[in-house]
Structure formats: structure tokens, C-alpha cells
Nucleic acid binder design. Structure first.
Lengths: 192, 192
DNA sequence: TCAGATATATGATTTCAATCATATTGGAGA
DNA sequence: TCTCCAATATGATTGAAATCATATATCTGA
């Protein structure tokens, strides 16, 4: 598994490989940041807990992605990182990354670029969550490729009850807007 | 009005001042990015339009803030920037900023830091939008200091109908959780 | 192969926010 | 000062998603 620049080149020396199993935490909300991460294999869910105990999925990291980069500049991790499938993870030492970035503008700019990309992703997600109609929201989320794990995860990620999502998916299939490719597998029907 | 580093020092040479009136656009979704911006005075709303025509407020820029930094690395602006009160805006030339950042790691890192801060803000917003109960959502949004303009803007920003927000605010006041400080002015009642 | 657990799926009911309607207030401008 | 307009505010109704319930399918591990 390769990560895009600068994670494969300039930061290679800061990397340490860790393996974690289903249910383990890479870090917890509130922990002091010690590293930023790249996921080689498995699945890691980034989640926050509201005061009322409600769980919110911030992001669902898939192989090839990096996560928690923003903690480079913060005093604590702002979410939990929960391993959902046994995962291979690369940890890039926070302090070393900062030092390298401070000496190397290319690295710093590359980091900026990653941040910028993440910002666009979050904006898109905010836009998604603002869609009132469950029907439209599910369809838009499908189009955005957010259904990568199971339906319940998908539901939590887009802020709908899973029963609602099952129902909406059935309706969308019936309307011919979505094709059911198997148990829990749905794909947008290409418009012609 | 000062912006934090690096906007007051290293990037000063890239700046150009523009004045826009209520209703004018700084840029539109889809435009090719030519600058990133700092708001000196006034108010600028960053909004996106969904395919179904629904308007989503991504952010509400207030004096002292910068906006559209993420467009440094993108091919187009991803939202509209609508001026809501006659505003004084500094435009930092995109190409010049990129060139300076490429030579100066401090500038690049400072940009990263801004991005990281924005990411935290968006995460918090996603968490906010995931709160189902209008009551809790309004309260959390108040606590986050999102009620800076009028109630209708506030309502749109947190994804609720303004009637709902007026009602919830009245209830919160009645419950003693929120104090009404005037027409359209509410403050969290400090817990003792 | 079987048992238990969990995801998928759908039915029935409830709840609560959106919507539609209608005042009322306050501010901007003539 | 008066008029107009938009923000604020609240009432009535509707509608859609959440919730609760239950059943089935699939996977895991014993």
C-alpha cells in the first residue's frame, strides 16, 4: 500500500507500523496527539461522542487514506479512532513530521493540500446532512460513494435511522433509481 | 483589522483590498480561484446549492476571519461567497501565495494550521447537524456561539426551520436554560 | 452441523419538525 | 412622522422519519 506524497518519501523515516484488531482504539478523543496515521488494510471509524452520549461518525477511513492529520496542530485528538476490522496502520510521529515540514516547504505544502481536500470532503458532508428528505439524502450519499461498509454504518454516517435507510433503498430500487446488487449492496442506476 | 500570521507579514505583498455591497458576490461556485480572502468588516456567507436547488450555508465569515483558503489547491471555488453587509475584503492573490508558500515553510505550515483549525470547525458542525432533537441542536449551537447574526441565518446554518428555532428558543427561555437579552438576542444561562 | 449473534428487512405506531397561516414588532427610508 | 418591509413570534395542521416490534437471512464460531 502506497500513500501519496509526502507520506511515501519525505516522511518515511517517521513511520512506525502497528496492527490492531477489531474493537481496539488507535486513539481516543482527548488523548494528546502523538502521531498522524495512514491505513494500509482494514477499516477505522472516526467518531465523536456528544454530551448526550450520541455517537457521530465523522469519517470512515479506508485503505490508502490517512487520518488525524489535523491533530498535528491541536492539543488533543478530537475524535475516537475505532478499529472495525483487523487493520494495518502506519503511524507517522507527530513531532518528527512537524520538524520535517518546518524545514521542507514541499512537505508543508503537501500537508496543506491534504487538509484542503479534507475540507472539501467535510463541506460536501455538511451539504449532505442538510438534505431533509431521507430519499434524496440516501440517493446523494450513494452517489458520493459513502456506502462502502454495511447499511447500518452507512445509516449512522448520514444521520438516518437504519430502518429508514432500508426502506428508502427498497423504494429507490422499486423506482429504478438504484440497483440492488446483493444483500446490502446497492448501486446507482446509471442514467442514460 | 489584523489577521493572524502569515496574513499580516509574509503575504502582505499579495494583498489587494476590495469593497463590496450587500448582495454582491465575492466569487461563485465553479469559478476559477484567483485569490483567498480575509474579511475586515461586514459579513460574508459561504453557501452551496444542491442539485435540488436547496441552499446550504457552509460558513458565515465574520471580521477577522479568512475564507476560501482551501481553493488554493482546487480548480474551482466550491461555494458561493455572498456579501450580506457592505464589506471590506482583502484578496490575497492565489498564485503569489502559492509561490511564497513554496519557498517559505513557515508560511506553508501556517496555512496548514489554518486548514487544520477549519477542519475542526467543520467536524464540530457535522456533529451539530447530527443532533436529532431541535431542542438539543439549538442549545448546542448557542453554546458554540453560532448565533451571531439574525435568527433566520442561524436557523439556516443549523439546518432547522426558523419557526422551529423561534419555538425552541422560547421553550429554552421558559426552562431557564437560555436567557433572552433582547429581540433576537439569546445567551446560554451560565450553570452554577 | 448447529446455535447464537448480527445484518437485513418490513410492519405499526408515535413523535416531532416542517409547513402554512397570521400576528406583531422594530427598523429603514421617504 | 408615517409607511413599508422584514424579522420575530406563535397557532394549527401535516407529513415524514424515529421508534418499537418482529421476522428472516447470513455469518461466525463451537
Amino acid at each position: 500500500m502506497k500513500f501519496s506524497s509526502p507520506f511515501d518519501s519525505a516522511l518515511a523515516g517517521t513511520a512506525r507500523k502497528i496492527s490492531l484488531h477489531d474493537g481496539e482504539m488507535v486513539f481516543r478523543q482527548g488523548d494528546t496527539p502523538f502521531a498522524i496515521f495512514g491505513l494500509i488494510a482494514g477499516r477505522v471509524e472516526l467518531q465523536r461522542h456528544t454530551q448526550s452520549g450520541h455517537r457521530v461518525i465523522i469519517h470512515n477511513a479506508k485503505p490508502g487514506e490517512t487520518f488525524a492529520e489535523a491533530s498535528l496542530f491541536s492539543e488533543s485528538y478530537h475524535c475516537d479512532a475505532l478499529v472495525l476490522e483487523s487493520s494495518e496502520i502506519i503511524a507517522f510521529d507527530r513531532q518528527l513530521v512537524l520538524e520535517i515540514a518546518a524545514r521542507n516547504p514541499d512537505v508543508a505544502l503537501a500537508l496543506s493540500q491534504r487538509f484542503a481536500a479534507q475540507i472539501q470532503t467535510y463541506r460536501r458532508k455538511i451539504e449532505l446532512l442538510a438534505i431533509d428528505s431521507a430519499q434524496e439524502r440516501v440517493f446523494a450519499a450513494l452517489a458520493d460513494g459513502l456506502l462502502t461498509a454495511d447499511i447500518k454504518t452507512f445509516s449512522a454516517e448520514i444521520g438516518l435511522a437504519h430502518e429508514t435507510v432500508y426502506r428508502v433503498l427498497a423504494t429507490l430500487v422499486q423506482q429504478g433509481l438504484v440497483r440492488k446488487k446483493g444483500r446490502g449492496l446497492y448501486a446507482i442506476e446509471i442514467m442514460s
